[in-house]
Structure formats: C-alpha cells, structure tokens
Amino acid sequence: MRILGLAILGLVAGCSQSVQDYKAETPVLSLKEFFAGSGKAYGVLQDWRGRQTLRFTADLCGEWSGDKGNLYEVFYFSDGRIEQRHWRLQQFADGKITGTADDVVGNAQGQLAGNALYWQYVLRIPYDGSTLDVTVKDWLYLVDKQNLINRTSMHKFGIKVADLTLSIQQLEPQANCEALKMQVAELAAEAKIKVNPL
C-alpha cells in the first residue's frame, strides 16, 4: 500500500506545472509591454462544479515609468455590477513581478518565464454582506503580441471554489489612460461611501 501511495503521489506531482516549463516559449511576455495603453478583456466565472455563474467584459489601460506601472481596470458583470481595480505593478530584470491593489491583501508575487506568468495573491471579495478572502492562482499565457489568455483558480482553506477564464487583447499601446483612471477613481470613491455611509 505504501508503494502504491508513493506511486500515486508521484503521478500527481508529475502533473503539476512550473512557470519555468515555458522559458523557451515565444513571444516573450513582458507586462510593461503588453499592459501598456488600452486593452479589452472578456471572461467567464465558473463555480467549483464547473457551472458558469458570471460573464463579464473589462476595459484596461496601463501606464509605465521604467519597471513600475499602474494598470487600471473596470469590469462590467452580467448581473449588472460594475467594479474596478487599480494594480500597482513592478517588473524586475529577473522576471519577478510584484503588485498591490486595494482589494488585494498584502502583495501579489509572481514570476515571468517565456510567454507565461504565474502569480498568486489573496483577493478580498464582497460576500453575503461582508467580505471573503480567497487565494488566487493566476496563469497568463501570451498567444501573440496582442492577445493573452488568463486562467485563474480561486481557493479557500486549500479547496478550489471557482475558476476564471479570461481573454485579453491589447488595443492601442500609446493610448491615454486619463479617462479610465478617472472612472476607476470615481468607482472606488462610490464603493467607500457604500461601506462607510455618513
């Protein structure tokens, strides 16, 4: 039985992937190149049973100064909700990525290799009149210079509770982000008022 258990464990371990598996893949993913200027995203959220629960589109716009960037996102959900996120990102020479956002607990940490990025963070989401912290495991794969596929799993207490599939297209690398930046700020202010009404 012990040998059988070790064999099963070896098979499971052999099925896991490392971002370094993709270091020879091209085109090479650089966040400061792909998430520069405007973009559009389309996604679906599935529960732990694989059942579709939400669809959404998102407008994105990124601004970079050297290896530090701001990525502004506005999400439009099929249930009528509109939400925002402002990522503050840094890309290091060795491919390491770090990021923070208002609804992210602590820092997001990741690694680029070839056409892929794997990163992980704890996301605080609205849930049943309160909030819920879930661990997000994010895989991003650059298909070509303008298109990226994002596969995400969300976990609570080590158990997968949801999956997310997202396609992102870069539209205009030189686009001005001021309009989306203002929309993100307005939505963030509205959210704070809802949480802390006068």
Rank of each mutant, 00 (worst) to 15 (best):
D67H: 07
T131Y: 14
M1Y: 01
V12H: 01
Q84S: 09
L140P: 03
I193S: 12
E73L: 04
Q52R: 06
S130V: 01
A185E: 14
I8R: 05
G50L: 10
F77C: 09
S16D: 03
T131M: 14
D67T: 06
V143H: 02
Q170V: 05
W119M: 14
K68D: 04
Q46G: 02
L140D: 11
Q183N: 15
N150A: 05
Q91A: 02
I8Y: 01
D102T: 13
S38Q: 05
E83M: 09
V122Y: 13
A101K: 08
Y121E: 11
C177P: 15
G43L: 04
P173Y: 12
Q17G: 02
Q146D: 13
A41R: 04
E172P: 02
G5S: 12
I168C: 03
D94W: 10
Q111Y: 04
Y22P: 04
D133K: 15
A116C: 15
G43T: 04
V195Q: 12
L89R: 13
R81Y: 05
L132D: 07
V12I: 12
F35K: 03
Q109H: 13
S78V: 13
Q111P: 14
R2Q: 08
D133W: 06
G10L: 15
A58K: 00
E73G: 00
D67L: 07
E63G: 01
S30P: 00
A41G: 07
Y42V: 13
E73R: 00
C15H: 09
L187H: 05
K68F: 03
G80M: 01
T152D: 02
L31D: 00
K68T: 12
D94E: 10
F34M: 03
G62D: 06
D163E: 14
L31E: 00
N150V: 13
E186D: 09
G69V: 06
G5N: 10
P173S: 11
L54Y: 04
V104M: 15
L132S: 14
A189K: 15
R85L: 13
G50D: 04
W119H: 13
G39M: 02
C15N: 13
K194R: 12
A13C: 08
A7T: 05
L60I: 00
E178I: 04
Y22Q: 01
Q91P: 05
G43M: 00
D133N: 15
D67R: 02
G158D: 06
C177T: 14
V74S: 10
D59I: 05
E178P: 03
L123N: 13
